[in-house]
Design a protein around this nucleic acid. Sequence first.
DNA 1: CAGTGGTCTAGACCACAAA
DNA 2: TTGTGGTCTAGACCACTGG
Lengths: 241, 241
Amino acid sequence: MKTRESFVPVYFQLAEDLKEKILAGELKPGDALPSETQLGEQYRISKMTVRNGLRLLAQEGLIKSFRGKGNFVAHPNLSELILKLSDPGLESSRSYDAKLLAINVISAEDGVALRLQIKPGSKLIRFRRLLLMDKEPVAVENRYLTYQRGQPLVEQEIKYADFPEAVAKHTGIITEGNQVTISAVSLNQADSELLETSSGIPALKIEQLVYGRKNTPLGLSIMICHGEKYHLIASTRSFFS
Amino acid sequence: MKTRESFVPVYFQLAEDLKEKILAGELKPGDALPSETQLGEQYRISKMTVRNGLRLLAQEGLIKSFRGKGNFVAHPNLSELILKLSDPGLESSRSYDAKLLAINVISAEDGVALRLQIKPGSKLIRFRRLLLMDKEPVAVENRYLTYQRGQPLVEQEIKYADFPEAVAKHTGIITEGNQVTISAVSLNQADSELLETSSGIPALKIEQLVYGRKNTPLGLSIMICHGEKYHLIASTRSFFS
DNA sequence: CAGTGGTCTAGACCACAAA
DNA sequence: TTGTGGTCTAGACCACTGG
């Protein structure tokens, strides 16, 4: 093939060709692709270029490679989704803001201590924030941070407390992982007042545990989100970065 | 470096080295990495091998490449998570089962028709399933499928209706995308009876839209999940495939 | 212009799988 | 053993960025 008239890379053309065959059903899940050497001969391109193209398909989850056996069309896995947390509701038409309610030093209660793997009663920094969409309160966030001596975590957090993106950027270097749990709860009295609604209303509870190196918990964020005004959107991964 | 005594690929060692430097803070977000040719000289490996290693870091979101400029340590994005849907609760110690309640042909109501981009009143196949954990009902699922003439979608769905994994595998070829919306609602009367609890209890509502080629909606799944017994877990992407 | 990342080649050897 | 994917090389040219 190697259509040099176009400016798309050859490996990309190969990938598109195969993708087309897979999506059209010409190649079904479980089927073997032609071997890399065969593809190289068919398309008159080198093996490395073939592999470059196949890598694209593998990244999209369309094929799987098995050493010594071949490349095979994958059984699509629709259950793995990408969740984007930062952007509440995704409706970019809406304005988004956050209001810092308080910063205190508190003693860790049992539940929080357990999750952060510290002793109950240990000192923690707590942020309370109110998240607003279109100037309406939609969520309350409690963020707990372990005090890390000598690490600029705390100062940065305070400085950028009302800019969650900035927080992520500045504390991010040391963070290695992140686990989020999503559940449904009823609004309690205090939170319902902050959210300017009545208690008992259903709400999303989003717990976010941030880990540093060696799986040390660094912080915990618990968000209580108004069920009707705030929702999460996730979708299958695809394309570019 | 090129330690040939070990069995780890050279490019992998390079990636680990750089990763270490980044995680240790030696290289900070925004910093430029040595150029690919420089790295090749430092490690006495060829440029392609260097690029192979850098690709790993790029996939993990640790670095970003800019043509003509260089490779740079990325500002970590903790807001992009991977959500695994199929596995309810993740506690693998629990047994998981599904019970098919009914399969009917129905006329699409407005809300469903809108999401599936069809005319209200069009014929749809509806599955109602009850999801069980430890033999306790935790969620009700309503699945709506457009009737696709000549495509074995329906038959496969029926055949494997109680094996969601199988459904995914067999219908998967034609599906290209997937969008999930998560919100919090109150249990209505009918659902609360199925879930053997009282109405008004908070519940997770998980809407899943499956698209085929050319962004044609193929099906819609609406799950109502018992708030206390069912929760979702997501985490940052990492490692292998 | 020089330097960078992006693509591509035509070989080579390795580890692994299946017959 | 043969064939497969996985790694690696030492070059080459391109497109882009910035001074």
